[in-house]
Write a protein that binds this DNA or RNA. Structure first.
Lengths: 352, 352
DNA sequence: CTGAAAGCGCTAACAT
DNA sequence: ATGTTAGCGCTTTCAG
């Protein structure tokens, strides 16, 4: 392993000068700076991040903490794609990743302890937060970006997708296709779920449509739950003509569930998803959904974090754009659906 | 930050003794060992992994290198699920993860350099390998486990799913349902693809069925490719009655592609996938596929790696079990299909 | 069974 | 503009 001492010897100078020169300090003359850089390249010198970290310098490493809990595989796909996008953005900017995964929710305190031991320059969180976690996070001075939470602090920035706008776009799309009896699947007390549900309610009421509580389904975001919700909606005396799902996974489940009850998508019912997973363009039917622009968003996350690290930016709340993608799971309301909507008769179910 | 010196002071002993005691060396008397442990716990002492790494000791950290290339999102879902499983197994055993992701293939040489700088105890690879990569890897003395490759070395173990067996199970399942005209989608020169294709050929010929080359489709593993392959098969004068796909993503694409050509799954064509992604149980129809038993496999990977790290095991080649999961995308061949199979007439296509 | 000394590779403070 | 000294927290000789 080649160290700054080796370089120093070759350059007839001291380790300090080498260290300084390599970090392009202006305390070193241009000529020696160049010479040192050249020798370093020649020798294939690479700074030891451990040694750097030990003396408290920057390590060019950031910690990632996402909890992919097994039970709630729900969001995982979306998180995983997001994780990937952020990881890529970090790599592009020369940052290494120190990754924490865990099944259980980790107390933030433990986490910070562990992370500060590794002397990362900052961290990206994608975990659930308790109240005390928030308290601690707000005060921490480790530059932190958290995704999908509504919070900020001196060194804490949150980046969230604009879910309120997303669901509004979905509902308005359905409205524009003539649907009125629109169900919402995915109400929940989880923080990421709240804006979606509220947006649904408000957009509906702004359109002057009363909300039928039997069309609101409280559930987690995974496919199993969607399947169940789809069946439940399909069994209704008067099923919806359209469904807004709070996630793509839910939507896929819902389509399957509806089908089991003899309702076809989009023929009998239109369904919108949320996330635009890579897979959603290939489901049958391809999903009309809300794109989270993850690659963009990943860059935004990393840039915000680097801003925090360098001190060029303060903690902020960032909301990223989302975009409706129209595919095949939604269509203009049909006569039959309208009739069904009016009547109280049980819809004619066909077998698959 | 509490160090061994703090503990030493409290315990009226030296840092060395503390260091030794904390690692349960038998060079320390039982009484002092206990006292030191107690004080350490009380003070919330946590060893600094950087300092440990700097002196060349174990860091309880392993590197993960998976390349989720954007273009070949193909395998990503499968890899991501696998990644998750391994990460969890590592966490359960108290290992931290240092994560490398990159869009491009990384020259192994660079990688090892970078990784050894971080003094990880070992690494888990899930990347493509060039010949020179193999050369280097076989010689490296960093304990390494690589997934999905056929290679081993002194400190290098490979863990692969038994794909030959997997495809055999899929083909035999189709055979048992009366299918004979079975297509294979996903032939490719990629290492993970070879066994699957060969297994298909051999299982078919063992069943005495000649292979029709127009039923073999050479392609990558992603959904787009599947969609295309499905259309191509659907356009054939004499389409297959069943399709073996080399990945679930392919299968999902194929089902969609076939549908566009008026062929329904499983009514007109049976399709098997490969991977058993979480999502595959919820597609319509739910996929008959090969389960990779990833959680098991993740543990096998980590245990093999720990074996290498502790020197208790040598490099080996491990093949993990896979298991057929029968769902709704396959069914017994129908009269109509049989007729179609015999005739040369173009199949009657219906609209969706 | 325990301790003193040395050093891993680097950087920050304090000289020169 | 450059060099010297010291120390980050830990472990590994080597001596008692």
């Amino acid at each position: 392993m080649v160290t700054i001492y080796d370089i120093a010897k070759q350059a007839n100078t001291s380790a300090v000068t080498v260290s300084l020169a390599l970090r392009n300090s202006k305390r070193v003359s241009e000529s020696t700076r160049q010479k040192i850089h050249e020798i370093a390249r020649e020798y294939g010198y690479r700074p030891n991040p451990l040694a750097r970290g030990l003396v408290g310098a920057k390590t060019k490493t950031i910690a990632f903490v996402f909890n992919f809990s097994s039970n709630e595989l729900s969001h995982d796909l979306s998180y995983m794609e997001y994780f990937h996008a952020i990881a890529q953005a970090a790599a592009e900017r020369g940052y290494k990743i120190y990754f924490h995964s865990s099944t259980e929710a980790i107390p933030i305190e433990k986490l910070i302890e562990d992370i500060s031991l590794h002397r990362v320059d900052g961290m990206v969180l994608g975990t659930e937060l308790t109240d005390s976690d928030r308290e601690i996070l707000r005060k921490t001075d480790i530059p932190t970006v958290i995704v999908g939470r509504d919070i900020r602090g001196k060194k804490l920035t949150s980046v969230s997708t604009d879910d309120y706008d997303g669901i509004r776009q979905a509902v308005e799309h359905l409205l524009s296709l003539g649907h009125k009896r629109i169900a919402f699947v995915g109400k929940s007390s989880r923080e990421t779920a709240i804006a979606r549900y509220e947006s649904y309610r408000e957009t509906m009421s702004q359109a002057g449509i009363p909300i039928d509580d039997e069309l609101i389904i409280e559930t987690s975001y995974d496919m199993d739950a969607g399947e169940y919700a789809g069946r439940k909606l399909g069994e209704l005396e008067n099923p919806p003509t359209a469904v807004v799902a709070a996630s793509d996974l839910l939507a896929i489940g819902i389509i399957s569930g509806l089908k089991h009850k003899g309702l076809k998508v989009p023929d009998d019912v239109s369904v919108t998803g949320y996330d635009n997973l890579h897979i959603s363009q290939f489901t049958v039917p391809a999903l009309t959904t809300i794109d989270l622009l993850r690659m963009e968003s990943g860059k935004i996350v990393i840039d915000a974090l680097l801003g925090l690290i360098t001190g060029k930016r303060e903690g902020e709340k960032i909301r990223t754009e989302v975009k409706l993608i129209v595919r095949d799971s939604t269509r203009r309301i049909t006569r039959r659906e309208e009739r069904r909507e009016k009547s109280e008769e049980r819809g004619e179910k066909r077998e698959t």
